[in-house]
């Protein structure tokens, strides 16, 4: 147990180093790009003396390394600078936008896991059957249909034609600003406020983007579960378990699934990380005010402080989830020593 914890500590210690690398690279890309942040602030037609003054204020006349040092110093004090676009501090913006993505990702991964894992196990135990074929086609579609197409189809069918779902965005305008933000997760905040109508509205808005993302993730989770299970079911210990006279359910879930659960935790953690970083397209289609949309819009407007801040948040989430997957391996699998 002791050396396992040691290995885990080593993995955790590598996180700050990776983060430093991430900050450095993102910072350099932002400075090397042929975009003038001064123009982004004052516009094309500002007089030259204004431009020069702003350049000085931003510290852009200093050497790159010094600029990086200053940025790093601010970062360590929890200051990510100010966004040109929103004119709020980037930290404030992230607090606004990130929970929206988090809410979407949590619901999506939950639905994807609850459906995907049993489906994958079912397909594996009935390999080659009609059920297996249906599951495989269903997953292939989920993985190969572009997510923007799926999103648009959803909107056309459920919003435009059937009128079952509300339109884009996180909430209806009549609820905007009525719910005091506590967690930033609208479904929870509306519940905390005791506003049932707003809760239903938030849930209805969440359903489509979360459903699209859940389908996409579920396809991957099901495929991985199926592949892992086929591998495990071919193991000799499965024959042993059957020779002991155990029930089929116990052979499948206790013995075969017990051997793949650790690997699945890794898949789930990385899928979740992918949802946090990769929901950009979905957020755009559904006008979901999440971190992906914030990042895209900032990038298009050369709002480098915002880009750096959003990248960092996504990077940290990714690293932490990776660490979690490592921890699962180290603590759950008796073979890891």
């Amino acid at each position: 147990m002791r050396h396992r914890l040691k290995a885990l500590a080593a993995a955790a210690a590598s996180v700050p180093i990776t983060l430093f690398g991430l900050v450095l690279v993102t910072f350099l890309i932002g400075r090397v790009m042929p975009i003038d942040p001064v123009i982004a602030i004052v516009g094309d037609h500002a007089p030259p003396d204004v431009m020069a003054r702003v350049r000085l204020e931003l510290g852009l006349d200093r050497p790159l390394l010094v600029q990086f040092g200053i940025y790093l110093n601010h970062l360590l004090h929890g200051d990510l600078g100010r966004s040109v676009m929103t004119s709020h501090s980037v930290v404030h913006d992230i607090k606004q936008f990130f929970p929206a993505t988090l809410e979407l990702a949590i619901v999506a991964i939950f639905v994807a896991t609850v459906i995907g894992i049993p489906l994958g196990v079912l397909a594996a135990t009935r390999q080659g059957s009609r059920i297996d074929t249906v599951v495989r086609v269903f997953c292939l579609a989920g993985q190969s249909v572009p997510i923007f197409l799926l999103g648009l189809l959803c909107l056309v069918i459920f919003y435009v034609k059937l009128g079952w779902a509300p339109g884009t965005g996180r909430e209806d305008v009549i609820f905007a600003g009525t719910i005091p933000p506590v967690t930033g997760l609208l479904t929870i905040d509306t519940l905390l406020a005791g506003d049932w109508d707003a809760f239903h509205d938030a849930l209805a808005h969440l359903a489509q983007p979360a459903g699209v993302l859940a389908y996409f993730s579920m396809a991957y989770i099901t495929r991985m579960t199926r592949a892992f299970m086929l591998d495990a079911l071919a193991g000799e210990y499965v024959i042993t378990a059957r020779a002991k006279g155990l029930s089929a359910a116990r052979v499948v879930w206790r013995h075969a699934f017990g051997n793949i659960s650790v690997r699945l935790v890794t898949v789930l953690a990385l899928t979740f990380a992918g949802l946090l970083e990769g929901a950009v397209v979905t957020e755009t289609v559904f006008s979901w005010p999440g971190i992906g949309q914030y990042l895209t819009v900032s990038l298009l407007n050369a709002d480098m402080n915002a880009v750096l801040g959003a990248t960092l948040v996504i990077g940290i989430s990714y690293l932490l989830l990776n660490l979690l997957a490592d921890a699962a391996y180290t603590l759950m699998d008796p073979r890891v020593r």
Partner: peptide, 12 residues
Amino acid sequence: MQDPKYSLNPVM
């Protein structure tokens, strides 16, 4: 069976 390395469940 032949080889306990494979015929015993590795995580139990």
